[in-house]
């Protein structure tokens, strides 16, 4: 495995252990126009669940909201402060058994 693959598999292993009930609709809604001009794309590395990935070809964010750990870091760190951020609905999202 290359270093990059190792890192990817390490976060995949972690996320695999988390229990979720996912909603059909994303609770994370960045403003796509702001993302286009955002320089840092800070959401793509700050997120502990690797939810955001920048799709260079289509110039947009891919958002794996099903993996969200509901920490709130992206909302605060976003360069453009443009994420319309909410907790998932009452019955949805992550459940921590250990916390």
């Amino acid at each position: 495995m290359t270093d990059k693959e190792k890192k990817q598999s390490s976060i995949d292993d972690k996320l695999f252990k988390v229990k979720y009930v996912s909603d059909e609709e994303s609770h994370l809604k960045p403003d796509a126009i702001q993302c286009l001009v955002c320089k840092s794309k800070v959401c793509t590395y700050i997120c502990p669940a690797n939810v955001y990935e920048w799709d260079e070809e289509n110039k947009r964010l891919i958002i794996g909201y099903e993996n969200c750990l509901e920490c709130g870091a992206c909302r605060i760190a976003c360069e453009k402060k443009c994420i319309d951020w909410a907790y998932p609905k009452g019955t949805k999202g992550v459940t921590f058994k250990h916390g």
Partner: peptide, 30 residues
């Protein structure tokens, strides 16, 4: 990336003997 720093701590000589052969049961953030 926050989880890469966590992996760094886990493999650090001060901590790696403590977690050796353990089974990951949950990952979380707050």
């Amino acid at each position: 990336k926050p989880y890469e720093i966590l992996d760094g701590i886990k493999s650090h000589p001060s901590f790696s003997p403590l977690v050796k052969d353990g089974e990951l049961v949950e990952y979380s953030a707050h």
